[in-house]
Simulated scan of single mutants.
Amino acid sequence: MTVFSATSLRSRRSRTGTHLVPFAVGGAFAAGAIALVAYLLWPTWGVGGASAPDKLPVSIGGTLFNVPTAAIRMKIQRHSGPQERIDVDFLYPSLEPPGAPKRVTADTVEEAMQPVDRIFLSIAAHHDALSPEQRVGTIYPRYLDQAATMPLDGLTMRMFRAETPYGSEDLYSSTDPALTARCTRDASTPGMCLSERRVDGADLTFRFPRSWLSQWREVAEAMDRLTTQLRGPRA
């Protein structure tokens, strides 16, 4: 009786193990299939998300500009669509967007105080305000000293009178190539120049170091090139 019971038990266990083999094989295949699907569907983007586009179409004063994203100085302005104003800068003379700004510490502050190597540009809707050409032709002459310096390499300089709103500035002008720039004089900080032009519904205000006037033709051509690049080909 005992022998028969033990034999029967071993027989049942053998049959049970045999029946479990197909389930084990099927489970392994199912697990493999699930792993494969999970691998194929798993997100592939990095932690930082998708990278920003190289250029953004921005409408200012109803005028379309294609602006390099890396050139936009303030994060809040880094979006496409209508904007009231946008501030950008470009390395000179390459006119490439600058790289990411370096973090300045107490140990590197002297190293960070390097000469300005870029052109700054603000583009703003003018809302039919007085144009740059009108200011040069009708407003500035009221405050200029009557004497004008002789042209230096084709560039004429006139001083503003001391008691005027522009008393610490000089006006530079030329016709070939065209350039008009209002420049502060060198003092505790180097002088800077401001040159404006109107493009449809927007005014472009360029700023650059006064010292660059020694190569003013190249600077004037650089501003022309930037204007063309930002506006793109026109029909």
Rank of each mutant, 00 (worst) to 15 (best):
Ser174Arg: 05
Glu169His: 05
Asp145Lys: 09
Ser174Trp: 00
Tyr172Cys: 03
Ser173Ala: 11
Arg161His: 08
Tyr140Met: 06
Ser174Val: 01
Gln146Cys: 01
Leu152Glu: 14
Asp153His: 14
Thr164Val: 06
Ala148Gly: 14
Tyr140Asn: 06
Arg161Val: 10
Met159Cys: 03
Leu171Lys: 06
Thr175Ile: 05
Asp176Met: 05
Glu169Asp: 13
Asp145Arg: 11
Ala148Phe: 07
Tyr140Thr: 06
Tyr143Pro: 02
Pro165Gly: 04
Asp176Val: 08
Met159Val: 08
Gln146Glu: 14
Ser168Ile: 02
Phe160Asp: 07
Leu152Met: 13
Tyr140Phe: 11
Tyr143Met: 08
Gly167Asn: 04
Tyr140Ala: 00
Ser168Tyr: 04
Asp153Gln: 15
Leu152Trp: 10
Leu152Ile: 13
Thr164Trp: 03
Leu144Trp: 05
Pro165Thr: 08
Leu152Tyr: 11
Ala148Lys: 15
Tyr166Met: 13
Thr175His: 07
Thr156Phe: 02
Tyr166Pro: 12
Ser168Thr: 14
Tyr172Gly: 00
Ser174His: 00
Ala162Tyr: 09
Met150Gln: 15
Ser173Met: 10
Arg142Glu: 11
Tyr166Val: 09
Asp176Gly: 06
Ser168Asn: 12
Arg161Ile: 09
Ser174Ile: 00
Arg161Ser: 10
Glu169Gly: 02
Gly167Lys: 05
Leu171Arg: 06
Tyr172Met: 05
Tyr166Glu: 15
Tyr143His: 10
Ser173Gln: 12
Thr175Cys: 00
Tyr140Val: 05
Leu171Ala: 06
Thr156Ser: 11
Ser168Val: 06
Arg161Tyr: 01
Thr164Asn: 08
Leu144Phe: 03
Ser173Cys: 00
Asp153Ser: 15
Asp145Gln: 10
Tyr172Ala: 05
Ser174Cys: 01
Leu171Ser: 06
Thr156Glu: 12
Arg142Tyr: 04
Leu155Gly: 03
Gly167Asp: 08
Asp153Glu: 15
Glu163Asp: 12
Thr156Gln: 13
Glu163His: 01
Tyr166Ser: 14
Glu169Leu: 04
Gly154Trp: 00
